[in-house]
């Protein structure tokens, strides 16, 4: 019994890591630029499919990860520089414009994926065994993905709070005008942030394709899942997203075990509604903003 409970709890925490990994890029972009990138899930998918191609050339997914991240960084930076930077974001419909632009991008990205990789559901076989400690069995690939995810999240947190460039990003998120007045290049920071957010999506894709099979059109649901995590945690809040991801992971895994998989699908949204009603700013919204 104890073994089962521990297995469930640990599996939940590990899946939390995967959810966090998928949500971090979206969170960073929202935190700094107040843009909800609706193409985020599609970037995850493309990152995964790039990893698949590299895997077919005998490149290990972990080695493919930096490559996928780099490609997605370039794509993201180009999109920011070429499209989003040119949109008028001031005024009441500002956020709507970027929302529409990223919505359109999600179609472009997923259909480029269709042209390059076809429509079949794809996955990469990687570390399919399990680690057995005191009767607790945990899948190896889940352990690795989760460890990388948590490491990523911590690294980004340190970058944002301890380094000069991270502080510049946070300053821009608090007040673009203020930051510009202090001599920061807002445009460069936005390009860097959007690129980095997309790179994190690419990295997430590299790892998750070994856990969750996906196809070119899987981006939409992934965006929703990532958005749920950051909305639960408080949009743009890192520690909040971390907590929310772990809570979601554990809630999903335990509900699935106790009440069945159908209930597990509902629990995410029940939690979401509860948070919206009782803490609309998210778990850690406002109080500890980036």
């Amino acid at each position: 019994m104890l073994v089962t409970i521990l297995t469930l709890a640990l599996t939940g925490v590990l899946w939390g890591g995967v959810y966090l990994l998928m949500a971090s890029g979206l969170n960073l972009i929202y935190g700094v630029m107040k843009i909800v990138n609706l193409a985020h899930g599609d970037f995850i998918v493309v990152g995964g499919l790039l990893t698949l191609t590299l895997f077919e050339l005998h490149v290990n997914p972990l080695a493919a990860l930096p490559a996928a991240a780099l490609v997605m960084f370039a794509v993201g930076a180009l999109i920011q520089r070429g499209i989003l930077e040119r949109l008028v974001t001031a005024g009441p419909a500002g956020e709507l414009r970027t929302l529409l632009a990223t919505f359109g991008m999600s179609y472009v990205v997923s259909n480029v994926g269709l042209l390059l990789w076809g429509a079949q559901v794809q996955s990469v076989p990687f570390l399919e065994g399990s680690v057995d400690a005191f009767g607790i069995r945990l899948p190896e690939n889940l352990l690795v993905c989760s460890a990388v995810a948590f490491a990523f999240a911590i690294a980004v947190h340190i970058w944002l709070t301890r380094t000069m460039s991270g502080k510049a990003v946070r300053a821009t998120s608090q007040s673009a005008v203020g930051a510009a007045a202090c001599g920061l290049s807002i445009r460069r920071i936005r390009v860097l942030t959007f690129g980095l957010g997309c790179a994190m999506a690419g990295a997430a894709g590299s790892l998750t394709i070994t856990l969750i099979p996906f196809q070119n059109s899987s981006g939409g649901p992934l965006t929703v899942q990532a958005f749920t995590v950051i909305a639960l945690g408080g949009l743009g809040n890192y520690v909040g997203a971390f907590l929310a991801a772990v809570i979601l992971g554990v809630a999903e895994v335990t509900t699935s075990f106790v009440f069945g998989s159908n209930a597990a699908a509902a629990v995410v949204y029940i939690l979401f509604i509860l948070i919206l009603v009782f803490r609309p700013q998210g778990l850690l919204g406002r109080s500890a903003r980036v």
Partner: peptide, 17 residues
């Protein structure tokens, strides 16, 4: 016997049962 929704990604708890 158990049914699961199409969006299910983690089959760990199911297989534990």
């Amino acid at each position: 016997e158990e049914a699961y929704p199409p969006a299910t990604t983690d089959f760990g708890p199911l297989l534990l049962k």
